[in-house]
Amino acid sequence: MQIIDPLFSAREAAAALHVSLPTFWRRVADGTVPRPVKIGALSKWPQSEILAVIEAAKAKRVA
Results as ranks from 00 to 15, higher is better:
residue 1 M to T: 09
residue 2 Q to H: 14
residue 3 I to H: 13
residue 4 I to E: 11
residue 5 D to E: 05
residue 6 P to E: 07
residue 6 P to Q: 03
residue 7 L to R: 14
residue 7 L to V: 11
residue 7 L to M: 15
residue 8 F to M: 12
residue 8 F to K: 06
residue 8 F to H: 12
residue 9 S to W: 10
residue 9 S to D: 13
residue 10 A to F: 02
residue 10 A to S: 13
residue 10 A to N: 05
residue 11 R to W: 08
residue 15 A to G: 03
residue 15 A to W: 03
residue 15 A to C: 01
residue 15 A to F: 04
residue 16 A to D: 07
residue 16 A to V: 06
residue 17 L to E: 12
residue 18 H to Y: 13
residue 18 H to M: 14
residue 18 H to V: 08
residue 18 H to T: 12
residue 20 S to Q: 11
residue 20 S to R: 11
residue 20 S to P: 06
residue 20 S to D: 11
residue 21 L to I: 00
residue 22 P to V: 00
residue 22 P to Q: 00
residue 22 P to E: 00
residue 23 T to K: 11
residue 23 T to N: 09
residue 23 T to D: 07
residue 24 F to N: 05
residue 25 W to G: 02
residue 26 R to M: 07
residue 28 V to N: 12
residue 28 V to Y: 11
residue 29 A to Q: 15
residue 29 A to K: 15
residue 29 A to Y: 12
residue 30 D to Q: 04
residue 31 G to C: 06
residue 31 G to H: 05
residue 32 T to R: 10
residue 32 T to Q: 06
residue 33 V to H: 10
residue 34 P to V: 04
residue 34 P to R: 07
residue 35 R to K: 13
residue 37 V to M: 12
residue 37 V to W: 04
residue 38 K to A: 06
residue 40 G to D: 00
residue 40 G to A: 00
residue 41 A to H: 04
residue 43 S to W: 04
residue 46 P to M: 03
residue 46 P to K: 06
residue 46 P to W: 01
residue 47 Q to H: 03
residue 47 Q to N: 01
residue 48 S to N: 09
residue 48 S to R: 12
residue 49 E to F: 10
residue 50 I to A: 06
residue 50 I to T: 05
residue 50 I to N: 07
residue 51 L to D: 14
residue 51 L to W: 08
residue 51 L to T: 07
residue 52 A to I: 11
residue 52 A to Q: 15
residue 53 V to W: 13
residue 54 I to V: 13
residue 55 E to G: 10
residue 57 A to I: 04
residue 57 A to C: 04
residue 57 A to V: 02
residue 57 A to N: 12
residue 58 K to D: 12
residue 58 K to A: 08
residue 58 K to G: 08
residue 58 K to H: 13
residue 59 A to V: 08
residue 59 A to M: 14
residue 59 A to Y: 13
residue 60 K to Q: 12
residue 60 K to V: 00
residue 61 R to S: 07
residue 61 R to E: 13
residue 61 R to D: 10
residue 63 A to E: 15
residue 63 A to P: 15
